[in-house]
Write a protein that binds this DNA or RNA. Sequence first.
DNA 1: AAATCGTGGAT
DNA 2: TATCCAAGATT
Length: 294
Amino acid sequence: MSELASLTTAWYDVNARDLPWRDPDIGAWPVLISEFMLQQTPVVRVLPVWREWVARWPAPADLAAEDSGEAIRAWGRLGYPRRAMRLHGCATALVERHGGQVPRRLDQMLALPGVGDYTARAVLAFAYGQRHPVVDTNVRRVAARAVHGLPDAGAATTPADLALVESLLPQAEQAAARASAAFMELGAVLCTARTPRCEACPLRETCAWRRSGAVLPAGPSRKPQAYAGTDRQVRGLLLAVLRQATGPVERLALDVVWPDPVQRTRALDSLLADGLVVPRGERFSLPGRVPADF
DNA sequence: AAATCGTGGAT
DNA sequence: TATCCAAGATT
């Protein structure tokens, strides 16, 4: 195996955080839930919601039996609520296509809604111990620095990234899966975007970027994303109203969240198009059955 | 292939 | 206070 993998795994053996979805006895479904929630959302915010979901919907069939609106509501404030709907879609697909189980084949994983190159391989590696290059933003940053001597990676995961990381993995399946978790942990805990802690890094002697001075770029490594005043913010405000409502709400209750009627309408229309919101006559609600007293 | 899609903690 | 960014996927 590569020196990068052996050094990083040895460090991980001692320093891995004790995250509940890393319990070796946890099932593939809880792992899949964690991977969805962790898409663009920090660990600390995922933890409490993940616990709720695993307790409430211990198997895919449990979630599939509910309206997608329940998933959206239980998603809470994790952000990007389309993930909740796609995860509900996953549960349905698992029941319909895979006997209520999480499949063990990459092509079957990639065919699930909301499951892309990262999530598919992460679940197969972490839940089933398979050998796949698991490439997220952390791993790409570690590879960019340690291997290429660059301060950060490109904007998106490329086939070249997958090939490189695959070449770093040990041959044995379980060791490869552990190395993948170790690379991610290193990027999340030490080899961070803005303030890397190179002194504590197991790769400090071999890292190409450190040997060239570890100079951080002046500007942001990604294009900073605006939020205030965007449709995204308005969608969030609208959905927050519908999440806490117990039934359909009047248009007026939605109108008060944003002053500009043009943008408000555009945001609501996009939520309707996404299926995150459903019209109920003159009113609106999350998707699903309406309680009898409405 | 660049834009879009939430939210909140850290700096 | 404003900016950056966090276990991505989709179109």
